[in-house]
Write a protein that binds this DNA or RNA. Structure first.
Lengths: 121, 121
DNA sequence: TGCAAGTCTGCGACAATTTGCAGGCTTTGG
DNA sequence: CCAAAGCCTGCAAATTGTCGCAGACTTGCA
């Protein structure tokens, strides 16, 4: 009955893959649809090589899918609601860090196209 | 507008914290209520020192809370549905790995007290 | 007071990740 | 066919994370 152990290892691998600032931003960037490497690099202000390396990791674990058109490589999320699941983790973020930055989070959610659950209008 | 960057970093820190087999098992072990360090060590078949170190990390990020009774330290989840959120990630696990282990996952979910969504009876 | 159970922290060796750079592959356009 | 654009991979240095061990701390009990 090493089932729990096996599942835990799978989950840990998945979380390890997601536990990087750049990769999270990539996933959120793909929330609304596919983009090519250069666009992603520009959007995230990162060297294209790094973006490519991160995408290779995500691709190896089947979290993103690739489509080639000409010399551009377009990526999209393999699971449409992965980005949603990630944002669901926000309530678990240590509150101390949010002090003085609380509205940054709402702003960020808005920037990512997520309706603000605290807003009543 | 570095808001997205800030939120991504917070989330990455959180995921990094969760991205470890032992810590995930600890969290799932605490799903149904508080337990002391020795019980956890026995349940997970790990040296108590290691369990303590992992718990210290989780505590530092406010994911678990401590209660001392006598010489035992009891831990409980700070967010009751953290364990549920983690299991929600199972659909994102690379399917290749699940081949030949598919029923391990259902078994594990059952062991963790989660109703099997694939079962209709 | 003294000792043992239960747990925590600091430290050092080992292992895994990250990151930039150099070079290679494929496609487009001349 | 050649050159440039766009992207990928391999490699090595630097950073970060892991894990066991030794020692310290607190509590319960004699």
């Amino acid at each position: 009955m090493p089932s729990r152990l096996i599942v835990s290892r799978e989950l840990a691998d998945l979380l390890k893959l997601l536990a990087h600032c750049d990769r999270l931003r990539l996933i959120e960037e793909l929330r609304l649809g596919e983009k090519d490497v250069t666009s992603l690099a520009v959007a995230l202000q990162l060297p294209a090589t790094r973006v490519s390396q991160h995408l290779a990791l995500l691709r190896a674990h089947r979290l993103v899918e690739e489509r080639r058109d000409g010399r551009s490589h377009f990526y999209r999320l393999a699971h449409a609601h992965l980005a949603d699941w990630i944002l669901d983790a926000l309530p678990f973020v240590d509150i101390r860090k949010r002090l003085g930055e609380a509205d940054h989070i709402d702003t960020a959610l808005a920037l990512w196209g997520v309706p603000d659950p605290n807003s009543t209008h």
